[in-house]
């Protein structure tokens, strides 16, 4: 580590600040949890500060930063998978809400129903599929951008994305409580 000057921090913050919220958003999509997303961004910033000189020379920081954040996320995921004990009580995850448990049908609108269904369905995708749906269909990254982030051939990504969408639709069809509710709504004409 080089001798750190105050101006190094100022420069680092000047370079990184415009990207923080965007990185947080990506982190949130990857982790599904606010605190985990903030921690992930924090971890990335801690890893990047010693690379200030390299960062200064990068012309397009956004895609580069996305890739770094994705790598850190995957590393963390691998570490967690090596843990012999599952995490208990990650109850803040938006993905873990079971449709039908939070609100009664009469209290929710149709778009809220669809949101709940989708959040539920997303949790039941495998990790690769979930990440791909999050990046492409939710955040609007192009396949080319995802290829740069993940280092996966375009053709592979495309077929994975197709499979992920097929799985998502399959799960959505299986979310019976709301399917029933929608049918009832339709009959009553509410």
């Amino acid at each position: 580590m080089w001798p750190i000057r105050r101006s190094d921090h100022q420069l680092f913050e000047q370079l990184m600040r415009p990207h923080l919220k965007y990185l947080y958003r990506l982190a949130y999509r990857l982790t599904g949890q606010q605190h985990a997303a903030e921690d992930l961004v924090q971890e990335v910033m801690l890893k990047l500060f010693p690379r200030l000189e390299e960062i200064e020379k990068i012309e397009k920081l956004s895609p580069w930063l996305s890739k770094v954040l994705y790598r850190v996320f995957i590393d963390q995921l691998r570490k967690d998978k090596r843990s012999p004990v599952d995490l208990i009580g990650d109850d803040e995850s938006i993905y873990e809400t079971q449709p039908g448990k939070e609100q009664q049908p009469a209290e929710v609108t149709e778009s809220e129903i669809l949101q709940k269904k989708i959040q539920y369905a997303v949790t039941h995708l495998n990790e690769d599929q979930r990440i791909l749906i999050m990046l492409h269909d939710v955040e609007g990254y192009s396949l080319l951008e995802i290829q740069q982030i993940q280092d996966v051939p375009l053709g592979t990504l495309k077929s994975r994305l197709n499979r992920a969408r097929a799985k998502l639709r399959e799960i959505l069809k299986e979310v019976e409580p709301y399917a029933t509710y929608e049918r009832v709504k339709g009959v009553r004409g509410i």
Partner: peptide, 24 residues
């Protein structure tokens, strides 16, 4: 697709950026 794009993101508070850089 519309519903996917509408998936919510929990907002960070105003101190988020300062907190991150403070830790660095």
């Amino acid at each position: 697709r519309q519903a996917l794009r509408d998936m919510p993101v929990a907002e960070v508070d105003d101190e988020f950026e300062n907190r991150i850089f403070g830790e660095v």
